[in-house]
Amino acid sequence: MIEWFTGLQLGIAVAGGVLCVILGLRGRIPTDLTMGVTALVELLLIVQLAVALAAPLAGNRATGSLLEFYVYLISALLLPPAAGFWALVERNRWSTVILGVVCLSVAVMIFRMQQIWTVQGM
């Protein structure tokens, strides 16, 4: 993992998640903004997957369990599309809250992935 990229990704996921939860609780249906934020979180996860696949070739290896790392990464990759699909099917405020909750869940997973990659023996 690349530290600054992971930090950026974490920041966007948290900020986007909080934004969606607040907008959702205030009664907004999913908009281009909230859907866009979720899509951005997904896009960054795909980049993270590419980074994770390429980094060991450059000598940047995971110190923890690689299997656990990829289980988190693949789980995280599934969430934004699922929430986005749901938001398209049923357009109400709770779909916006769900987008936010999913972004925050992704943030937690990225944090765990960072721990697994960098902290020896976790």
């Binding site: 599934l78 749901w86 769900i98 909750v101 869940s105 997973m109």
Partner: peptide
Amino acid sequence: VGRLLIVVYGVLALA
């Protein structure tokens, strides 16, 4: 709001 509950359950189940 029940959908939110289901989503959180789903995420926890996945994790």
